[in-house]
């Protein structure tokens, strides 16, 4: 049932993986330059996010990320990256991914997005929409109650939802062995009553395959699927982290030898679909896109008075009073 990938698809996937890493590294540097806040690099997870996105229908399906994934969701539209750049710059509009893009903003509170995904999938099922919700969470997030509660209920509802556990080996400094005694995270699906599968998260074609099958199950009414995609975190947890304190050097070196980008480049080169020049071009293009997004975001900084917007649909009398006090103190636009 998996839709065969065209050469254009394959080249787009490679381009998006490279774009994700370039954007992520630029974001990291922006933080170092004092131009952005804390952010979480994607290095090592590109094949999982790009491969999953390729298996979805951006006009019908929803993606609920944790916080590492937005740089790799180009398939859902340029707005995802543009919003993400604003997000890490501290612009409130960073949380607003415009219609009709079916992507939620980053979620900082771990696994809280999992029940939201189940609720959305349930709502789509109720209204007869043909589509699914795919939610990303990390290996650490599988220890949160929200994951168990939501996955359990999803099984009961046979909701059209796909749980993608990005197992990158580490939850900041906590290794998987401290997270669970289960053989793997996919095994947890047995308790929920729906299938689970473990996939090599450095192999984008394998990820595409399993997510495609899960989507087919979801939209045909067969219910949820749990996918564990295994990779290794090739960068610090966030800009605020120093992994040399806990991550064994030999592990990291070995993982760099299994870099998902290198792996797919070799695969496509072997098929005559990719060259080093393509890599150079893809990197330059991604850098230009990121630069434009940064320029746009930096040129249009939020007026701090926006903190009184969107608290409720209509401001309460009290908030209105506080807003007036704010203006008396700071002025209408203190930028």
């Amino acid at each position: 049932m998996t839709r065969p990938l065209s050469d254009d698809d394959l080249r787009a996937m490679m381009t998006h993986m490279i774009g994700a890493r370039v954007s992520s590294q630029r974001a990291f540097n922006l933080q170092r330059q004092g131009r952005a806040g804390t952010n979480a690099p994607i290095d090592g997870s590109e094949a999982i996010v790009v491969g999953a996105a390729r298996a979805l229908d951006p006009t019908a399906d929803w993606v609920l990320p944790q916080y590492r994934e937005p740089v790799a969701l180009q398939r859902f539209g340029p707005e995802v990256l543009e919003s993400y750049v604003r997000y890490i710059l501290g612009d409130p509009d960073g949380g607003h991914i415009p219609e009709p893009v079916r992507v939620w903003p980053p979620q900082i509170s771990l696994a809280t997005q999992v029940p939201h995904a189940v609720g959305m999938a349930w709502g789509m099922k109720r209204t007869g929409e043909t589509g699914c919700a795919l939610v990303f969470l990390g290996d650490g997030s599988t220890s949160e109650g929200d994951f168990y509660e939501a996955a359990n209920f999803a099984g009961v509802l046979r909701a059209p939802v796909i749980f993608v556990v990005v197992n990158n080996g580490w939850a900041i400094s906590t290794p998987v062995a401290s997270q669970t005694a289960a053989k793997n995270f996919a095994a947890k699906s047995h308790a929920f009553g729906f299938p689970g599968t473990t996939v090599d998260g450095t192999d984008i074609l394998a990820v595409y395959e399993v997510v495609s099958e899960a989507r087919e199950r979801a939209v045909s009414g067969a219910g949820p699927t749990l996918i564990e995609a295994v990779t290794y975190r090739l960068a610090p947890h966030t800009t605020a982290d120093d992994p040399t304190r806990y991550m064994p050097d030999d592990e990291l070196v070995a993982a760099r030898g299994r870099d998902p980008l290198t792996r797919f480049q070799k695969e496509l080169s072997g098929r005559g679909l990719w060259s080093d020049d393509d890599t150079t071009r893809a990197e330059a293009d991604a850098d230009a896109v990121m630069e434009a997004a940064i320029q746009a975001a930096e040129a249009d900084r939020a007026n701090p008075i926006e903190l009184f917007d969107h608290v409720h649909a209509i401001r309460t009398t009290r908030l209105e009073r506080q807003r007036r006090e704010w203006i008396d103190h700071y002025g209408e636009d203190p930028r």
Partner: peptide, 11 residues
């Protein structure tokens, strides 16, 4: 949590 998702989906 599912109510949040349901609301986002228009319920």
């Amino acid at each position: 949590g599912t109510s949040v998702g349901l609301a986002a989906a228009g319920q």
